[in-house]
Amino acid sequence: IDVTYLSSQGMFVSFFVCWFVCQVEKFCQDHNVRIKMPDVCPPSLVNGFSAILPLAFALIPLYALEVIISTSTGGTMGICSGFMAILSAPLNALVSVPGMFILMPFAALLWCFGIHGTMIIMSVLMPLMLQAATNNAAAFAQGGYDALVFYPVTLFGCVGVCGGSGNTLPLVLFGLKAKSEQIKAVSKIALIPGWFGINEPVTFGMPIMYNPILCIPYILNIIVVMAVTLVGYKVGFLVPGFVPIMTLMPMGFAAFLGTLRWQNAIWDYLMLIPSGLVWYPFFKVYDNQLYKKEQEALAAEAE
């Protein structure tokens, strides 16, 4: 949990730092701001001294900002933790059911731009999810399944119930019969990892990021799965988890171990249906598009 929290803290800040350093480097290069060395010096020495001033101009403001934040908060916060404290305030207010229907699509939207939205949201919701599991463990010990309480943060699991973030396993299954060789190849590689909730092969291989055709169902199917899952909890088919499972496992395993109920175990597989219904029309459009490009490339190569 600590590693997850720290990595998500630094993610947004690292984007800003990279942008800032590149801007400083470009400014120094455009205006020839560097330590000049005699022409007789070897290139490695010249390059090393040329980087000193851009490095200093980038490092000093960032270090000063870190010192200011640390001093003003008594050493309890830095740039990363301060940013997360600001981000956590509105996120913590969104832990109701309507709020979860905002947070989870937002996490998927961040993924579409190459940002690990699931990890960012999880860093804020993880304490609440652990608290919910702890409360339900105590309730289960006292009154069994009837004493369990549904907490809205439970819906966080819907972001990747079948195939990882964005519920991409239906897309992979469709891709096994795709006309496009690219989609078919990626799907073969992504099938087994997807069963374990690891979908980087399909996320980067299709790709989904920066791909509007696939980003739309990537976000939309999460909303559909959340709505269906909420109904499952309301009618009593599903029960909230009371045993935290903090590792990746094949579909259904973590749901069973966290609740000791077969209904929760098969739910992961049942969600392939509504998720697949959302994915299919977009998959067909993208498959036809790639297939046409591949055929045109083959025809041009033959000519």
Score class of each variant (00 low, 15 high):
41 C>E: 12
88 S>K: 15
299 A>N: 12
204 F>I: 11
142 Q>C: 00
215 C>Q: 10
167 N>Y: 02
222 I>P: 05
117 G>C: 04
16 F>D: 02
214 L>T: 07
98 P>F: 08
153 V>W: 06
207 P>L: 06
34 R>W: 10
259 T>M: 08
225 V>H: 05
115 I>W: 05
18 C>I: 14
6 L>G: 12
113 F>D: 02
101 F>P: 05
237 F>P: 01
261 R>V: 08
14 S>V: 11
287 D>V: 07
210 Y>V: 15
112 C>H: 08
202 V>D: 04
240 P>T: 08
22 C>V: 03
45 L>K: 10
258 G>V: 00
236 G>R: 09
241 G>E: 09
38 P>E: 11
189 I>T: 15
289 Q>L: 11
138 A>N: 06
254 A>D: 04
1 I>D: 13
141 A>H: 09
118 T>N: 06
76 T>K: 12
186 V>N: 05
299 A>P: 03
183 I>A: 02
218 Y>M: 13
169 L>A: 03
49 F>T: 14
294 E>P: 08
118 T>W: 04
124 V>D: 02
269 Y>K: 05
254 A>G: 06
46 V>Q: 15
297 A>F: 13
221 N>M: 10
54 P>N: 11
245 I>A: 00
280 Y>L: 04
110 L>K: 01
117 G>S: 05
167 N>M: 04
290 L>A: 04
83 F>D: 03
24 V>T: 07
211 N>V: 07
4 T>Y: 11
65 L>K: 06
45 L>A: 14
246 M>A: 13
106 F>G: 02
144 G>T: 08
298 L>K: 14
36 K>F: 13
36 K>I: 15
183 I>S: 11
68 I>T: 13
28 C>T: 14
279 W>H: 04
300 A>S: 10
27 F>I: 11
5 Y>Q: 14
159 V>M: 13
225 V>D: 02
72 S>P: 01
47 N>K: 15
132 A>N: 02
70 S>P: 01
125 L>K: 00
269 Y>W: 14
302 A>L: 13
255 A>D: 10
233 Y>L: 13
26 K>I: 11
100 M>D: 04
74 G>Q: 13
284 K>A: 10
187 S>H: 08
46 V>E: 15
158 C>I: 01
269 Y>N: 04
233 Y>F: 15
124 V>Y: 00
201 P>V: 14
174 F>Q: 00
281 P>V: 07
160 G>Y: 02
70 S>I: 00
251 M>F: 12
129 M>E: 07
42 P>K: 05
88 S>F: 14
109 L>Q: 04
230 L>I: 01
150 F>W: 09
60 I>A: 03
232 G>Y: 06
138 A>D: 06
132 A>F: 03
266 I>M: 07
198 I>M: 12
151 Y>A: 14
52 I>Q: 08
197 G>Q: 04
192 I>M: 14
9 Q>G: 01
129 M>Y: 04
20 F>G: 12
169 L>K: 00
